[in-house]
Nucleic acid binder design. Structure first.
Lengths: 157, 157
DNA sequence: AATAAAAAAGTATAAATTTGCAGTCAAAAT
DNA sequence: ATTTTGACTGCAAATTTATACTTTTTTATT
C-alpha cells in the first residue's frame, strides 16, 4: 500500500463528509481497508495542508485548503476554465495548453490549490508543464485537475 | 472589558501575525492589556470561526475564515463593491443601498463572511438591513464592512 | 545481492485544545 | 426587591493532536 493512496483517500473522505477528529478519520480509512495510526494521520494532514476549523455547529471539522465550497470559488473557476484549450500527456508529464499569454494565470491557480499530486508547474506563454509527484498516475493527475477545475474535462470535449 | 473588544483584538492579531498556539495568542493579548485564560480563547476562536491550519513550514497557525488572502477573493470583491451605492446609519442599524435587484447578492456575501459584529442581515430588492450585535458600535460596523470589502468606503466617496 | 541512506510508520509521551462544572454578574421578569 | 434567566469565564479534567524516539520499509549504490 502506497502512501499516496492514503493521502488521496484522506482527501476524498474529508472532501465529502464532516470529519470531527483524527480518530474518526482513522475509522473511515479502516472501512476502506487502509490502516495506520493516529500519529500518521497527524503527519498526513499536515502534509496535505488540511486545517481544522469550527463547523459552525459547535464542533470542528477538517477542511481541505483548496477544496473549499465557498461560493466565491465558483466565479473564479468559471474564469479559469475557458482559458484552457487542451491537455496532453507525455512522458509521465501533463502539458496544459492555454489561450496565448494566459499560461501563467492558469498555472498560478493550479499552484494555489496546493495539490499533493503535483510536484510543481512551469508556465510559458501558452503552455504549462505539470510535473506529477513520483508514484502519481496520470489517471490521478486527471482526477486532480478535474477537482481543481470542476467541468474542465467537459469543457475540452 | 467587553467580550467584543477581545474578539476584535484576536481577529486583529491573527490577521497580522502568525500565531502558532493559543498560549502565544494569550501573551499577545496581555501585551494589549487584555487578560483571559486559554480556555476562553478556545471558545472565542470557535465563535470567530478561526481555523488552525498547517503553515507550510512544519508548524501550524490560526487563520481567519473571512480574511483569507487567497487570490480568488480579490476578484469576487471587485465584483461586489460596484454593486453598492450607499450606506446609511439609522437607529443603530446600517442600511446598505445597492443597484436594484442586487441586494441579495451583496447580503449573501456579507453573511458568508460570518462576522461576529453582525447579528444578521435582511435583503430586499436594493436595500440591505445590517443588524449589528448588541454592544457593537457603528464605528465597529464600518470597520467590519471595510474588512469584508476592502475599498468599499473609497468607492462610495 | 549486500549495504548504506532515506523515507515512512509505530509506540509512547508530551503538548495543545476542548469541555463539564461551578461561580459571577447583569439584565429581565415577577 | 427578589428571583430567574442567560451570558461569560476560570478551573481542572478529559480529549485530541503533535512529536521524540525507535523500528521497519523502501530506495539507491556499490
Amino acid at each position: 500500500m502506497q502512501k499516496i493512496d492514503r493521502l488521496l483517500a484522506i482527501e476524498e473522505i474529508i472532501g465529502h463528509e464532516r470529519i470531527a477528529s483524527q480518530e474518526v478519520l482513522l475509522k473511515k480509512l479502516e472501512e476502506r481497508g487502509i490502516e495506520c495510526t493516529q500519529a500518521t494521520l497527524s503527519r498526513d494532514l499536515r502534509q496535505l495542508g488540511v486545517g481544522r476549523i469550527p463547523d459552525g455547529q459547535g464542533g470542528y471539522c477538517y477542511s481541505l485548503s483548496g477544496h473549499q465550497t465557498r461560493r466565491q470559488d465558483f466565479d473564479v473557476r468559471m474564469n479559469i476554465i475557458p482559458l484552457v484549450r487542451d491537455m496532453i500527456e507525455a512522458r509521465g508529464l501533463m502539458l496544459v495548453k492555454t489561450i496565448p499569454g494566459n499560461a501563467n494565470t492558469v498555472a498560478y491557480f493550479i499552484d494555489s490549490m496546493q495539490r499533493y499530486e503535483i510536484a510543481g508547474t512551469i508556465a510559458g506563454d501558452d503552455t504549462i508543464l505539470v510535473v506529477p509527484r513520483d508514484g502519481v498516475t496520470m489517471h490521478q493527475i486527471h482526477d486532480c485537475l478535474e477537482r481543481i477545475l470542476p467541468g474542465l474535462h467537459k469543457h475540452l470535449e
